[in-house]
Design a protein around this nucleic acid. Structure first.
Length: 218
DNA sequence: GTCCAGGGCCTAC
DNA sequence: GTAGGCCATGGA
């Protein structure tokens, strides 16, 4: 079994540092994390551009917009009705409990903060960890569908693990390094977009030599 | 036309 | 606790 740092190194050598999250502020990162739920990033960028244009990238602004105005701005990201509600719930939560400051919220310690985020409607484990890691610089690992798919194929996971189990799998085996967690998740996403979609034989895949699928299907 | 994307909620069982 | 349906746009 190839260890996780070897996989990381192969991905890093191939794709280089990704410098995620692509956003101009922590608040924009959090908004992007909600908008990208089951959604192509290109569509999220359009919605974020609309929000920026409308000067709506703050907790106060999200709260003061009408629901229909917000829905219109984020339409390109899809699921715009639920996402508008989620953004406003998040914005109002910050306004009511943290003076509208995401930075103030993110100053809290990781586990209580994570639990608090998970109580918010529309913020599940992946969205919470994305906000914690990329906006807050907290020591947590972001798991997504790509992560489960890739590491099952590599033989590290069996494919039936739940979110927390996969997160703990990485946290237990990787050095405690925020920069590493930041790059690792980004590299998994970038890699899977390129190589893990339709063809399981991964032509040109940088993980070719360690891929359990290829070893089982030569 | 079909498939899928950087999920999460709700309901039924 | 988990399987299935639902949410919606836009690019490949």
């Amino acid at each position: 079994m190839t260890d996780l740092m070897t996989v990381y190194q192969l991905l890093f050598d191939r794709y280089g540092p990704r410098h995620w999250w692509p956003a101009e502020s922590p608040f924009e990162m959090a908004v992007g994390a909600i908008l990208t739920q089951n959604t192509n990033w290109g569509n999220v960028e359009k919605a974020v551009a609309n929000l920026r244009q409308a000067d709506a990238l703050s907790a106060a602004a999200l709260c003061s917009l009408s629901r229909s105005e917000l829905e219109k701005l984020i339409t390109p990201s899809g699921f715009f009705r639920q996402k508008a509600e989620r953004l406003q719930l998040f914005g109002c939560f910050l306004r009511d409990h943290y003076r509208g400051s995401l930075e103030l919220l993110l100053r809290k310690s990781l586990e209580p903060l994570r639990k608090e985020l998970l109580t918010l409607k529309g913020i599940g484990p992946e969205t919470a960890d994305s906000i914690l890691l990329y906006a807050g610089g907290h020591l947590t690992f972001v798991v997504d569908a790509y992560t489960g798919r890739l590491f099952s194929r590599l033989g590290h996971l069996c494919g039936t693990e739940n979110y927390e189990e996969i997160r703990n799998f990485f946290l237990r085996r990787l050095p405690r390094d925020v920069g590493l967690y930041n790059e690792y998740h980004a590299l998994i996403v970038v890699h899977c977009k390129e190589h893990c979609r339709k063809r399981p034989d991964c032509p040109g895949c940088p993980l070719e030599m360690i891929c359990a699928y290829r070893q089982q299907n030569p």
